[in-house]
């Protein structure tokens, strides 16, 4: 199965796109009457509302004072809006702590995972060696294994190695689980870099490792950034492994566990929960929306280029 590799280089991509846009039937105006265009806009606006409405509701509830959180009022900005909930979650609840914990764990794992994947992807891309295709197939198959499949042995291992309630177990588990996918993305990208560049460098007296560090890595910055972001967002949003390994001691929780704790089972602090949700979501969403183009080309490269 091969499709044209989406390229990261936007200068190459753009002329094709505009050409396609001019020629493609669906872009051409001739088929679309004003009536049809209006209908299309209405459908899209309707869907956008459905997309955004839950987020607006989270925002709306986060602005309500504690005694009015449970209300059938559907207005987005409540008449008695207040930032009290934000103050409480940031300074009286453990949110800052949880966010810090998440940042620490996530950045560390993303970096470790990226370094491990970047080097081995190079070997997969440039060398033929024994066991190469078996390993590649294995890496692809691991995408089929649910995290839940590994949780029993990981939990028992963590108990035996005394890693329950520590970040060590979590960091190691996250970095390794992200490796197969990262290798696929990076291998796909390295494959698009002409091998002549390294050959020239080696003729000039560079060692293969030097060629990798001086030529391939700098050229792969967009793919490396994509992989880093992928690993980052995976670990940032992860709940299951964190819940199994970190346990319930409040000061070490990552934010998804912390938020789950705010939900409690019976007495839900809705206002606080929603304020916390807004605080943790907005930065990630901005990051995600600004990088979405690269993330998508990375995804299709990794998964499609079998």
């Amino acid at each position: 199965m091969t499709i044209n590799n989406p390229t990261y280089d936007s200068s190459v991509e753009k002329p094709q796109k505009t050409k396609a846009r001019k020629k493609s039937f669906f872009h051409a105006n001739r088929g679309d009457s004003t009536f049809k265009r209006t209908i299309i806009h209405i459908i899209l606006i309707g869907y956008c509302l459905i997309s955004v409405y839950p987020l607006l509701r989270i925002f709306s509830v986060s602005l309500r004072p504690g005694n009015r959180v449970l209300s059938t009022d559907l207005s987005i900005i409540p008449p008695d809006a207040t930032f009290e909930n934000y103050r409480i979650v940031l300074f009286e609840q453990g949110l800052l702590q949880w966010i810090w914990n998440s940042i620490a764990v996530t950045v560390t794992t993303a970096i470790i995972g990226l370094i491990i994947a970047a080097t081995s992807a190079y070997a997969f891309s440039r060398y033929k060696f024994k066991g190469r295709s078996t390993l590649l197939i294995y890496l692809l198959t691991t995408q089929m294994i649910p995290t839940a499949m590994l949780m029993v042995p990981l939990y028992i291992l963590a108990i035996k190695l005394n890693m329950i309630g520590t970040y060590r177990g979590l960091i190691i588990a996250y970095s390794v689980t992200s490796v197969p996918f990262s290798i696929w993305i990076l291998k796909g990208y390295y494959d698009t870099i002409p091998i002549e560049l390294e050959e020239a460098a080696i003729i000039d007296g560079a060692s293969p490792l030097q060629a990798f560090f001086k030529i391939i890595l700098p050229l792969s910055t967009p793919a490396l950034a994509t992989t880093f972001l992928f690993n980052f967002s995976q670990a940032w949003n992860e709940f299951l492994i964190a819940r199994i390994i970190l346990g319930s001691q409040e000061s070490i929780l990552t934010w998804p566990l912390g938020l789950n704790r705010l939900m409690g089972q019976y007495l839900v602090q809705w206002g606080q929960y929603n304020a916390a949700a807004i605080i943790v979501s907005i930065p990630v969403m901005i990051l995600f929306l600004s990088m979405s183009k690269y993330m998508i080309s990375g995804l299709t490269l990794g998964s499609v280029k079998g």
């Binding site: 956008c48 997309s51 839950p54 709940f239 929960y273 979501s281 995600f288």
Partner: peptide, 24 residues
């Protein structure tokens, strides 16, 4: 603009989305 709004559910952390909907 449409494209950006449509991506939002994907960009929102799943845990947040799930718990927000649970409230709804």
């Amino acid at each position: 603009v449409y494209r950006m709004f449509i991506i939002i559910p994907w960009a929102l952390p799943q845990v947040v989305a799930a718990m927000a909907w649970r409230g709804e």
